[in-house]
Simulated assay, not measured.
Amino acid sequence: MTADTMNGRHPGEPHREGLAQRLNWLRAGVLGANDGIVSVAAVVVGVAGATESVPAILTAGLAALVGGAISMALGEYVSVSSQRDSEHALIEKERRELAEMPEEELAELAGLYEARGLSPETAQRVAVELTAHDALRAHLSTELGIDPDDVVSPWHAALASAVAFTIGGILPLLVILTPAAVRVPLTFGVVLVALAITGYVAAWIGGSSRGRAMLRVVIGGALALAATFAIGAALGTTVG
């Protein structure tokens, strides 16, 4: 019998420990890759619509890649930092309440378990035993859905987002450097396939419809590429 089985767990079944952290960087990574693909592809396709100059396309693409990666990392860091600060504030508030009014907190915890379907006697017994074991953890988990050992990290989210944006952005940057006759249609095709993959992964992480998610990102990416190419073709000149 394995340790997981002894603890009432089934192999391969997801559990709480580290879940917020894993979902945090996975979400940031998938969104970063998606943004990298669309953002850089839109820039290079737009420039390719205006000129066939490889240095011009490469310069614009690299600028979009570096600027976008930094912007994504900063945005994720600020967003997740705010979430982390809120979680820390709630943890401190709960710790203070447990110190100042332990009886009221015990009654509140028992009431929460009773509201979940336990009998008053069982709810009271569970609340007492969990409070004796780790009062703060019991209240945070039951009242707020917070695991004090699993508070999200803004650094993880920022790094995952920046790296994913860079990886996603490199794809259209490489494809657009193919021969002029095929670079735009080839970039369209490769980018839309890549977006379908990121849409599938995002839906898998969130447990939503794969097909619908893939369709959304592919249509959105196609519109972005078509719009920027049309603008570039309308305003630019082709270099022979």
Rank of each mutant, 00 (worst) to 15 (best):
V78C: 11
D85N: 13
S81F: 07
E92P: 00
G49D: 03
A73R: 07
E108G: 11
G75W: 08
R84F: 09
A107N: 12
E92K: 14
L98N: 08
A60D: 01
H88N: 13
S71H: 07
S82G: 15
Q83Y: 03
L74N: 01
A89G: 08
L118M: 15
L58Y: 01
Y77F: 15
E92Y: 11
R125H: 09
T51K: 08
R116A: 13
M101H: 14
L118V: 00
A60H: 01
P55Q: 09
G68Q: 02
E92Q: 14
V47T: 09
R95A: 12
S86D: 02
H88F: 14
A56S: 12
E105G: 11
Y113H: 15
A89K: 11
E100S: 15
K93R: 15
Q83W: 01
L106K: 13
A123Q: 06
L118C: 04
R116M: 13
G49V: 06
L106D: 01
S86L: 14
S71T: 04
V80Y: 06
E104Q: 13
E104Y: 02
A56E: 08
L118E: 06
A107Q: 12
G111V: 07
E114P: 01
L65Q: 03
H88C: 01
T122P: 00
S79D: 13
A99Q: 14
G75T: 06
L58R: 08
A115D: 12
I70K: 00
A99I: 11
R95H: 12
E52F: 09
A73M: 05
E108V: 04
H88M: 14
S53P: 04
A99M: 12
A69H: 00
A107T: 13
P102D: 10
L58Q: 05
E100G: 05
A73I: 06
E108N: 10
T51C: 11
R96L: 13
K93S: 10
S86T: 15
L74H: 04
L109M: 10
I57V: 15
A48W: 05
S81W: 03
G111I: 07
E52A: 14
V66A: 10
A99D: 13
V80E: 01
G75M: 10
G49Y: 02
L112A: 10
G75C: 05
E97A: 15
L90C: 05
I91C: 10
K93W: 00
G117S: 05
L58C: 00
A48Y: 06
T51Y: 10
G49M: 04
G111A: 03
E114F: 01
T59P: 01
I70D: 03
